[in-house]
Amino acid sequence: MDVNYRQSVAMLRTRSQWIALGVLLAFLAVAGRVFPSEIVDVMNMMFILIVAAHGLNILTGYCGQISVGHAAFKGTGAYTAAMLIVRLGWNHWVALPVAALAAGGAGVAFGLPAFRVGGFYLAMSTLAAQFILPALFLFAMPGIVGGISGITVPRPAIGDFSFRIPENQYYLFMPMCVVMTIVARNIARSRTGRAFVAVRDNEPAATIMGINPFGYKLRAFFIGCLFAGVAGWMRVVYDGCVRPDIYPLMGSIWMLGIIIIGGMGTTIGPIFGVILVRALNEMVLMLSPFIGGFFRPEIAIQMGAGLGLIVFAVVVIVFLVFEPRGLAHLWQVFNERMRHWPFKYEPG
């Protein structure tokens, strides 16, 4: 193959990849108008989660810094956006970068202990973030932050195209998700992304190679939480309000589960993870009244909530035990198999 440099660093190297991308984008472009409203709504939620999952994937998957506070950082972005829009009357589109920066700043603030400790202790500091930030949303200055009932935020609009109904929100979230995915991919394969991987794999060795682990960890925190802030802004548009209970510890753990299931340290992973987890969740919600029918009524009421937790936990456990590299690895194996087909595939 005559490959020049531009070709070999390109994200899409073959014609079939371009065709696949074209088909996917065409599908995404029409999907918002073709599917019924409920499905579009679920897809919107997936787009938001994918953006947030990309952030956590950069932080945890590439840089190896476990964060159990991602939902809180998302909430920081959401609350910043809501306060700017409602209390100060800012434009939605101006509030977006500010919200992202605020979440990134919060991430750096809670990542600062990385200066002294690593790995596991840092996870504890993000756990502190997960408890302190939502407590702030709930208790601090109820007149401004909104207290328990939160803030109601008007939806943005471009001309007459208002993002009030799911079908229209789709055309805001889908392009944002696509752009953020490309950004995430490009961060991962840049010098910064490679430094993240070096810090993750062997910190002392990375130091010897001239990488400042502390600086790169903070950078990972900043970028990861920036994504969370963008996702938080999207969530404000999605819900039309902010409330303290939208960003619980459970949310953070869902995010971690999603990147584990999808495959950490790959850009495709979070996308797979979100799709699988959300699809399973919707299925559980649909099936739980049916399963609940076999039990006593007082048990049946709680079936949905409880079963959702159990299914999620079991899926995470199964992936951790049997395929810690996640769906992304299965996808890679599948691709290799197809490439060698009809010859036998020997895993290398």
Binding site: I253, I310, V311
Partner: peptide
């Protein structure tokens, strides 16, 4: 964490 939520789910149901 997954174990934690598994126990949580079981407790919620029963």
């Amino acid at each position: 964490l997954a174990v934690a939520y598994l126990l949580d789910g079981v407790a919620t149901i029963f």
